[in-house]
Nucleic acid binder design. Structure first.
Length: 431
DNA sequence: TCTGGGGTCCTAGGACCC
DNA sequence: TCTGGGGTCCTAGGACCC
């Protein structure tokens, strides 16, 4: 048996830990730039708000209904996520982190009869030790566990834990689950499946393997197998131990608060992305052999001239130092930039990651220079880590985040910044 | 006259996930 | 005025290899 822990309305729940006033009112959390809603409390959902709503379209409704509106505070969410995962690992011995708010747990360590009780204990401990409400689904495959966790969240009678542990419950769950709610079936596939009368999970599960392969493809067949109780999606590929395989791609991109037309401003934005992405590379002990830069005009404004393009640049040898990345990225930017457009979004994308340790050096590179750069970046990282801002030292062509992104309603860094720790004032003599 | 069969790697694009 | 960001896998097609 495998379990899936899913944190309820995760970003909102993180905010509610440190701000009890938010616990009784509808709350939404916005994306970068305060653009869209990315997380909502149940009260906000009840008002008709949905994930993905552009904020400007629902701003009035939010104000009218006294919705608490927050900008995303991702350092806080990352830290709370770590606490959840650590708490689970302390009970179960291991945990497979799937996303910031989800993890898989191996339930085979308990006898079948004790699975639900063990699950309840995990949920209780996360609530008590971290302060986040969660839902737990338990089943024989990950796709079924996902379905079970939806039931656990949706129906209070389950008291946060739902196990699909026999054939009757599996059939019943598949009958009640719409096909679009199945893990791996998105909007497009819902449309593709509709003409075949496949509207619920049970319809897909009951088709033949050949049919499924014809209508979908090999990934569809895996989903079909999982729905039928045959486990075939490997969680070892999403292991998180020290031997975690390196991810395959990395991307850093942003939308701008206002369109950018001047090349110089775009170059400083690319300088920022280069800074962020090379820091991530160093943190993971990885290096990039090449990168591409993309720029895009505002596609929500068809009345303006549209242009989007990307350009690839190889690096002379795999690198993770900010200067080398920024240099290649700037060169790529020069290749794609066209005058006369207002750019809304830009980014750097790396798809050739390798381990920095085992990188193949260039025959013509200078080992002494390589070592100097490595030590320089080490020093920069150390200084930036010890300062309150992440970016005390940075390359010259760099634009601080605040200057181009809106994040007007961000909460404090309650758990990761010393100045933001909650202060409690005790008063004596009944005052 | 006639032009195989079995591979790999890379890229772009499409689909999905949270 | 105003519409997120960071990933994954799969497929098809082109270029190349022996």
């Amino acid at each position: 048996m495998v379990g899936l822990i899913d944190c309820n309305n995760f970003f909102v729940s993180c905010e509610r830990i440190f701000n009890p006033r938010l616990r009784t009112v509808p709350v939404v959390v916005l994306s970068n730039n305060d653009g869209c809603i990315v997380a909502l409390s149940n009260e906000a959902k009840a008002l008709g708000l949905r994930r993905g709503n552009p904020y400007f379209q629902v701003k009035e409704l939010c104000e009218r209904s006294n919705v608490a509106v927050l900008s995303g505070n991702h350092r806080l969410y990352g830290d709370i996520s770590n606490r959840v995962m650590t708490t689970v690992a302390a009970i179960t011995g291991s945990v497979k982190v799937y996303s910031i708010d989800e993890c898989f747990i191996d339930f085979n360590i308990w006898p079948d009869a004790e699975v639900v009780a063990a699950g309840r204990e995990i949920v209780r401990r996360i609530r008590r030790d971290v302060g986040v409400p969660t839902s737990l689904g338990i089943a024989t495959t990950k796709t079924l566990a996902k379905i079970a966790s939806r039931f656990a969240k949706k129906y209070s009678a389950y008291r946060c834990v739902c196990a699909i542990d026999n054939e009757y419950r599996r059939r019943r769950a598949l009958e009640l689950t719409e096909i679009g709610d199945v893990w791996g079936i998105g909007r497009r596939l819902v449309k593709r499946l509709a003409p075949y009368g496949i509207t619920h999970a049970v319809h897909l599960a009951d088709r033949s393997r050949e049919d499924v392969e014809k209508i979908l493809n090999i990934t569809g067949v895996r989903t079909w197998q999982e729905l039928n109780g045959c486990s075939c999606i490997d969680i070892d590929t999403i292991d998180n131990g020290p031997d975690t395989p390196l991810q395959k791609q990395m991307c850093c991109s942003r939308s701008f608060a206002t369109d950018i037309a001047e090349y110089g401003k775009l170059e400083s934005a690319i300088g920022l992305f280069a800074t962020i992405i090379s820091r991530h590379l160093r943190e993971r002990g990885a290096a990039a052999a090449g990168l591409s830069v993309f720029i895009q005009t505002n596609m929500h404004r068809p009345d303006l001239p549209q242009y989007s393009a990307s350009a690839y640049r190889p690096l002379p040898e795999p690198a993770n130092d900010t200067m080398a990345i920024a240099e290649a990225a700037t060169e790529a930017l020069r290749a794609v930039y066209r005058k006369g457009y207002g750019y809304k979004r830009a980014g750097i994308h790396i798809s050739e990651l390798c381990s920095a340790q085992h990188a193949q050096h260039s025959l013509f590179g200078d080992p002494a220079d390589r070592e100097r750069r490595r030590r320089l970046m080490q020093a920069v990282d150390a200084i930036n880590a010890s300062s309150l801002s992440n970016d005390s030292i940075h390359i010259a062509s760099y634009m601080p985040v605040e200057s181009h992104a809106r994040c007007e309603k961000r909460s404090q860094l309650f758990t990761t910044r010393i100045d933001d720790i909650i202060k409690v004032n005790f008063q004596r003599n009944g005052l």
